[in-house]
């Protein structure tokens, strides 16, 4: 017998604290797989956010820094500038990156900071109990939009991948999803590309990953995957928004 699937080396043995069926766990594993594939475990430093993934440092066999809410891109900038031959990534939720940390992500991208950002868009604030996120969909019920997100009073969701694509600094930007095995494979490819872009020194790279929050969406894990596919993907189209020629295209 030969193994076709096992635990990546860069993923620690620690049991994840995430809710049953939360796709944060899948994305952690994909990041670890990409790091294994590229053989960069001893050269990679992660930056954990404030959000459900605050304990990400426990789940990777990597050196890590834990950043204040939204500040991970600034922290990663500091690390990368001291250690330009190492690989630095941030792992950030949508409240972290697209609300409180919007300035940090936009300017890190604009500077073309040679870091990789794994951006988890689950359309909600998970950790604090399901409040509205900048990415919550029009009409989406959350604990702070109990009647559904009203675009007339709170405005529209932010499409981070598209917005950052308007900048010249980023070298690679894509949006992927993890709602079924086929898309999980593509997400893995995208995350690996993003790291490759950094390894090749081409500039800033970001992968927006559509993810679930079954707990705060009030759905079973299986229903949550379906909700993501049917509601999030139409608003947040998958695809590669920016890619250097040297890096071959990832199909979405």
């Amino acid at each position: 017998m030969e193994q076709v699937f096992g635990r990546p080396k860069a993923l620690s043995e620690k049991r994840l604290h995430y809710c049953p069926g939360c796709t944060h766990g899948i994305i952690h594993r994909l990041v670890a797989e990409a790091i294994d594939d590229l053989g960069i475990q001893d050269k990679t430093i992660g930056v954990a956010p404030v959000g459900c993934a605050v304990l990400a440092y426990d789940y990777f066999n990597l050196d890590f820094q834990q950043a204040a809410h939204g500040r991970a891109p600034a922290v990663a900038t500091g690390i990368k500038r001291v250690l330009p031959d190492r690989f630095v990534f941030t792992y950030q939720g949508d409240g972290d990156l697209a609300s409180i940390g919007m300035a940090e992500i936009v300017h890190a991208a604009a500077r073309g900071e040679k870091i990789t950002v794994i951006f988890i868009n689950n359309a909600i604030y998970g950790m604090t109990g399901g409040q509205m996120a900048p990415t919550s969909l029009p009409g989406q019920k959350t604990t702070t939009s109990p009647y559904g997100r009203d675009i007339n009073t709170v405005g529209y969701p932010i499409r981070v991948a598209e917005m950052l694509t308007t900048l010249d600094g980023p070298a690679y930007i894509s949006r992927v999803s993890v709602h079924d095995p086929k898309h999980i494979n593509k997400a893995k490819e995208a995350i690996r590309k993003a790291f490759e872009v950094q390894i090749q020194g081409l500039g800033f790279s970001l992968v927006e990953v559509l993810s679930t929050c079954p707990t705060n969406w009030g759905l079973s894990p299986r229903e949550a995957l379906k909700w993501l596919e049917e509601n999030m993907i139409p608003y947040y189209p998958l695809g590669v928004f920016k890619s250097p020629e040297e890096v071959s295209k990832v199909g979405a």
């Binding site: 017998m1 699937f5 635990r7 049991r15 994840l16 944060h24 899948i26 999980i184």
Partner: peptide, 13 residues
Amino acid sequence: ARICPDTVIEVYR
């Protein structure tokens, strides 16, 4: 194994 969020599953062939 691909979809398992908790890396519970190993697969052999």
